[in-house]
């Protein structure tokens, strides 16, 4: 029974007009949750959390730097998975999700690099160093930009999506390299203080705003992705009846 209705349900959700409506319904909720959790995390991180005994208030950059870094890897994982689905089963929605994840991932990677640089200057005395963590994160940004560039380099959008999906899939090798770089090589960058298994080595007053901001960036990703996928579906399906109905009907929805 299950195996019969789940693919049907997925199949329906995978159809562009259905997903367009589904994403349109969920997007404002995701945005509201992102703003709410983000505001709580900001208050917790900037106002309530105590100053660090070594770094003073400079460490407060952590509340945007680390969630952004997590998102830069998480979104790459989603993009790689969607790229795999797109290449193997040629699902149009998977192509769109993969291609529209790339700019959001690039945005978070850029934020990670810039905020890290602004944190590094007062703490390490340098804006940048060519060590494993920083270099592999920069490679991650170039991979995202490569995927975006390749997607737009083709006259035929779907052909471009397939080429870019292939690049996205190869580049997934870089994700564990970024993650484990602080363990594998000597680096200025500090190791992880938050662990899924075993105790985290961070004060609870600093941990909860960090985790709340992580939640906020996840919600933001969904809100942004839904908006982007809706736009891309309109573009890809502009000859279809359902898009025509939206265009000629009300300007919203």
């Amino acid at each position: 029974m299950m195996s019969k209705w789940i693919p049907l349900w997925l199949h329906k959700l995978g159809s562009p007009p259905t997903f367009y409506r589904f994403a349109g319904t969920l997007r404002p909720w995701m945005l509201a949750l992102a703003l709410l959790t983000g505001a709580i995390a900001l208050y917790g991180g900037l106002v309530m959390a105590p100053a660090d005994y070594q770094q003073g208030d400079a460490y407060r950059i952590i509340f945007i730097h680390v969630p952004s870094a997590w998102m830069s890897l998480f979104i790459y994982g989603v993009m790689g998975f969607a790229a795999f689905l797109a290449l193997v089963w040629r699902i149009k929605l998977a192509e769109v999700v993969a291609m529209e994840s790339a700019p959001i991932g690039a945005a978070f990677t850029f934020i990670t690099l810039v905020t890290g640089s602004l944190w590094g200057k007062p703490m390490w005395g340098t804006w940048w160093t060519w060590d494993a963590r920083l270099t592999s994160e920069l490679v991650l940004l170039f991979l995202y930009l490569g995927v975006i560039g390749l997607y737009h380099a083709f006259e035929d959008r779907r052909q471009g999506a397939r080429a870019a999906a292939f690049l996205a899939l190869i580049g997934i090798i870089n994700v564990p390299i970024v993650h484990f770089s602080v363990n594998w090589w000597n680096t200025l960058h500090q190791g992880s203080t938050i662990r899924l298994l075993g105790p985290s080595t961070i004060a609870p007053g600093m941990l909860w705003p960090l985790l709340t901001m992580m939640l906020a960036t996840k919600f933001y990703y969904l809100a942004s992705l839904f908006g982007r996928v809706r736009t891309d579906l309109l573009d890809l399906e502009s000859g279809k009846d359902w898009v025509r109905t939206i265009a000629t009907g009300s300007t919203h929805q």
């Binding site: 003073g56 208030d57 400079a58 950059i61 945005a107 934020i111 602004l118 942004s224 908006g227 982007r228």
Partner: peptide
């Protein structure tokens, strides 16, 4: 604590980049 020149630009970049990402599509 004297780190305003590093901290607030970092937060500004975070919000400006995400705002641009949200409104572009």
């Amino acid at each position: 604590g004297g780190y305003a020149g590093y901290l607030w630009p970092a937060y500004a970049v975070f919000f400006i980049v995400l705002l641009a990402d949200f409104f572009a599509p």
